[in-house]
Design a protein around this nucleic acid. Structure first.
Lengths: 102, 102
DNA sequence: TCATCAATTAGATGCTTGTCGAAATATCAA
DNA sequence: TTGATATTTCGACAAGCATCTAATTGATGA
């Protein structure tokens, strides 16, 4: 599950731990690429589709997606045996606001 | 030295490597704290002064400051045996713009 | 010059993490 | 039910990193 409350439930506020999780998630180049790909779709990005674009094993991809989900940066949508992801721009913007406070 | 061109030389543009260095620099809680402290001063923050606020050895502090400098997030000012730091908000904002593109 | 103080570097240690293959789980279709 | 496919979990390994102490460099003042 995500460290941030669900989407569509008002303005997002991040505590220290969430800020840390997000910063860590963004610090890996592969995950940043994954976020870019997910963010480039208006539709949810399908897992298998994502997998085809990145030279990593399914296990590694699953690990990264879990990190992104835990950080709250993606919303996970499960349909049967398929999984899709949606970028949570509200969380991303909440993180940017934290940086802007510096 | 910094991975980003010097301050005051026009708008900052970040390449992939710089984005990665900044993200990594922000991913450590101690460094985020350091940035907060440095950013809270309008005057350059003195190294010894910073050191008094954080329970780490001088060696560890030096290591972190080097990471921040390499990422381009702080400008280093040396005067004799003393060192001071200044937050580079232009670089920070350039990073936020990268995130906003997602 | 010499002693002192600020900061950096070197080297070591333990923890975290990105990665994989293999095994497990879950869903769907025949 | 059986087999195939999608995703996750497990266990292991190597690389990276935060931290320390000790040694070093560099500047200042007596």
């Amino acid at each position: 599950m995500s460290a941030v409350k669900r989407a569509g439930a008002g303005p997002v506020t991040l505590n220290e731990e969430q800020v840390h999780l997000i910063a860590k998630a963004l610090a890996d180049p592969r995950r940043l690429e994954l976020l870019r790909q997910i963010g480039s779709c208006t539709k949810p990005a399908q897992c298998a589709e994502i997998k085809d674009c990145h030279p990593v094993s399914a296990a590694t991809l699953s690990h990264h997606m879990k990190e992104l989900e835990t950080a709250g940066l993606v919303q996970v949508m499960r349909e049967g045996k398929f999984v899709s992801y949606l970028l949570r721009r509200d969380v991303l913007h909440a993180y940017m606001e934290q940086l802007a406070k510096l």
